[in-house]
Design a protein around this nucleic acid. Structure first.
Length: 760
DNA sequence: GAGCACTGC
């Protein structure tokens, strides 16, 4: 392969550094492929070939116990169309978007597609296994069709009896779009036989038998229905992601099954005579099935092949210290030597993305005329939606699109047209550091990805056709990667989970979890709950704690809402905490318009700090919203560097909070008007543990610990010294920064923890 | 005086 400098790229940096990365034999790729020598086809991801699972240390062990569902079953024609449910689909549907008539061409095409999915061949074997066993582990590669088909097979076979089938997903979009798809396949209107439930959005009815829901939603349902008695089958999808809520669900399902299937023994025999037995199906995409199996009394593991185009994987011959530079050189090697096709580059964060984009655009301008144009797009969570969406626009003719993305493109978003993937092997990961004193804090540091992540990234090149993945790390480095990431339960704060479990009468340390968190993390959470008055000296849930758990909020903010009743400022506190709980930040940062941003933000700035600054922004938006149309509102937000989606999401959250408040007798209209003190006081109750005092040397030191914290430069209090502060959270990057900071009179908060306990 | 992967109720 040729060096980019061959094309006359002339910055000083490039002259010093430019050398091509020695990708083994990539340049004469086509010739070598036909000869079958030269090109190393390492870990090639070919339709379900065993190569793909080579990365897993225990892959070979799995084989012993895995039985393939591909054992020669032929799908029965009577089932492959529509089963017992078909009678329900014959009702006339008034609206045009409803299901088509059973014999329409569209419906037939849908059923043909269903029958061709890889999992369809194993249908009978799969149903038989689920019938025989209380718990089934199903390993399915991408494209196997397991998530849409298994619930339908279970329904159509009658295994669910009269109960519902729950299918849990870690993400909302997945739950809603899967339900949509399955409703089409069942030829019913969404919300009838097939429905979904995610936060702020539910489409289900008394007729619903297959319900897709987020894992958070079903964990919430546990609070009102501890045995999940509405469901006869619970399918946990994407279990390998090991989200906190999936782990809590998996643990609870085990105890629920022990109660609902009284005769079940360790080998998991059928329980035809139990009145309302529960079937569990764990679906996962990776190699760690053994662990799920062991957890569920050595449950049977089934394996189903996927449908993926082959992806050739090249590892870098030597390790690349400067991964952005290596990514740039690799991009230009692809651009100059490889056939057309868009490129996706995985980078850890926004900063790397923006700097690499600049370099690529700089060098692309110096390419000879006969080379295709380069179009760069960036994709990361903090970026405006419209910018992220640019990657989806069709690539113009004679152009190669280069998408620079974070992990967002690994699971959450699928970009069409990608033929080449460049994987830096890095990501950023949040990790909670528990400190018994001071409550602990989050860190966000760049680290190596895992094997499953690396495979996922490579797979992104094979969505639509054969692809190529260039890894900017050696094959040894790949082999030394962890198989999978640490489950979330081991790296996040447990304050909210412990509070919710206490409402179920459970203690987290006694729960039968697949992975148990540190005692330090648990005691840090217990300490926070005690400070909030949610538990008493004997760690028993208090009346106030029970109220806090009802709110879909961090316990700190729930505590502030509960406290606001006394100070008569619930309206203001709801405004603030609903913004703080929204998934996107309110204040948009645009790196190249920084001066304009700070200037505009001054309008909302409140002298006491960030919380009341948020309140000012909410009040200003509300005025605009009342007076102006949608377009003007959006324009106003853009001009003021405010994220309107945050306002809209916060409005939904606020509505939920109003319902909860009303239920427990908190007057949501109680307002302190322009008196700020009660608002800060209420927040002070919730943030009693998150406080720091100014030291003589100008730094802030935690009141509950010894940590020196710095006010984050993005805060309105960044260049102002006040005697005492409260803050939303701490984040360690280069230093320990307090974010979401407000000044608070010293006399306030030192007593708040005690007040919380007294009230409780 | 400096930077923030991704979910979810």
């Amino acid at each position: 392969m040729r060096d980019p400098s061959y094309y006359g790229l002339k910055t000083e940096k490039n002259h010093k550094r430019a050398k091509s990365i020695p990708w083994p034999d990539v340049s004469d790729d086509d010739k070598d492929k036909t000869k079958g020598n030269g090109v190393k086809r390492k870990n090639s991801i070919v339709n379900g070939s065993s190569d793909q699972s080579r990365g897993g240390q225990n892959g070979h062990k799995n084989k012993k116990r895995r039985s393939s569902v591909h054992n020669g079953d032929t799908p029965q024609s009577k089932d492959s169309a529509h089963g017992p449910s078909s009678s329900q689909s014959k009702r006339p549907h008034v609206n045009g978007s409803g299901p088509s008539t059973p014999h329409s061409a569209k419906f037939k095409a849908v059923q043909e597609q269903r029958a061709q999915l890889p999992i369809a061949k194993g249908r009978e074997a799969l149903i038989e296994e689920i019938r025989k066993n209380d718990v089934t582990i199903l390993l399915g590669e991408t494209g196997s069709g397991k998530t849409t088909q298994v619930p339908q097979y279970i329904l159509e076979s009658g295994l669910a009896r009269n109960g519902m089938i729950a299918v849990t997903q870690p993400r909302k979009v997945a739950a809603t779009s899967l339900a949509q798809r399955v409703a089409v396949e069942q030829n019913v209107s969404l919300g009838d036989l097939v429905g979904y439930a995610v936060r702020f959005d539910e489409k289900s009815s008394t007729e619903t038998r297959i319900k897709y829901l987020t894992d958070g939603m079903i964990v919430r349902e546990l609070m009102s229905d501890p045995l999940l008695s509405h469901y006869s089958v619970v399918i946990v999808d994407e279990a390998h992601e090991r989200t906190l809520r999936t782990d809590l669900l998996i643990a609870n399902l085990k105890t629920i099954q022990a109660k609902r299937n009284p005769k079940s023994d360790a080998k998991g025999k059928g329980n035809a005579d139990a009145s309302n037995p529960l079937k569990i199906v764990i679906m996962s995409a990776t190699l760690d099935a053994e662990k799920f199996s062991r957890f569920y009394h050595n449950a049977k593991i089934l394996y189903v092949k996927g449908r993926q185009h082959p992806v050739k994987i090249y590892h870098s011959a030597e390790s690349q210290l400067d991964y952005t530079d290596a990514a740039m050189r690799t991009f230009f090697q692809i651009h100059t030597d490889q056939p057309p096709g868009d490129v996706l580059i995985f980078l850890p964060g926004q900063e790397d993305i923006e700097s690499l984009q600049k370099s690529i655009e700089l060098y692309a301008r110096q390419l000879p005329r006969d080379k295709p144009e380069v179009l760069t797009c960036t994709m990361f969570a903090a970026q405006e939606h419209s910018q992220n969406n640019k990657a989806f626009a069709p690539t113009p003719p004679n152009t190669r699109k280069c998408i620079l993305a974070t992990n967002i493109a690994e699971t959450s978003i699928t970009i069409p047209g990608i033929k080449y993937v460049i994987d830096t092997g890095k990501c950023k990961e949040k990790q909670y550091l528990a400190r018994t004193a001071g409550g602990g804090f989050d860190t966000l540091l760049t680290r190596d990805i895992t094997k499953s992540s690396a495979m996922q990234r490579a797979g992104r090149a094979g969505r639509e056709g054969a692809g190529v993945c260039f890894r900017l790390y050696t094959e040894d480095a790949f082999n030394n990667m962890a198989v999978a990431g640490e489950p979330e339960i081991l790296r996040c704060s447990l304050t909210a989970s412990i509070l919710n479990l206490k409402c179920l009468g459970q203690n987290l340390e006694e729960l039968d979890l697949m992975d148990k968190p540190d005692l330090e993390t648990i005691s840090s959470a217990l300490k926070t709950l005690w400070l909030l008055g949610a538990i008493d000296n004997n760690q028993k849930l208090t009346a106030a704690g029970r109220q806090m758990a009802l709110f879909p909020l961090e316990p700190q903010y729930a505590c502030a809402v509960v406290a606001s009743k006394e100070y008569g400022c619930t309206s203001e506190v709801l405004d603030i905490v609903s913004i703080l709980s929204a998934s996107s930040k309110l204040f948009v940062d645009i790196s190249d318009q920084r001066d304009a941003v700070t200037e505009t933000r001054r309008k909302f700035k409140h002298s006491s700090g960030d919380h009341l600054t948020v309140l000012n922004a909410v009040r200003a938006y509300r005025e605009i919203a009342a007076a102006e149309n949608k377009h003007a509102r959006r324009e106003w937000c853009r001009k003021h560097f405010l994220n309107e989606r945050t306002f809209l999401e916060a409005r939904d959250i606020r509505e939920q909070l109003v319902v909860t408040c009303t239920k427990i007798g908190i007057d949501v209209n109680a307002s302190a008007k322009d008196n700020d003190e009660p608002v800060i006081r209420s927040l002070g109750h919730g943030l009693a543990g998150n406080s720091a005092l100014l030291q003589p040397d100008g730094t802030y030191k935690q009141t509950m610990g010894q940590t020196i914290v710095k006010v984050h430069p993005g805060s309105t209090l960044a260049d102002k010294k006040v005697p005492a502060i409260i803050y939303d959270d701490l984040m360690y990057t280069n230093q320990i920064y307090a974010r979401g900071v407000s000044a608070i009179p010293k006399s306030f908060f030192l007593t708040h923890a005690l007040l919380n306990q007294k009230k409780a």
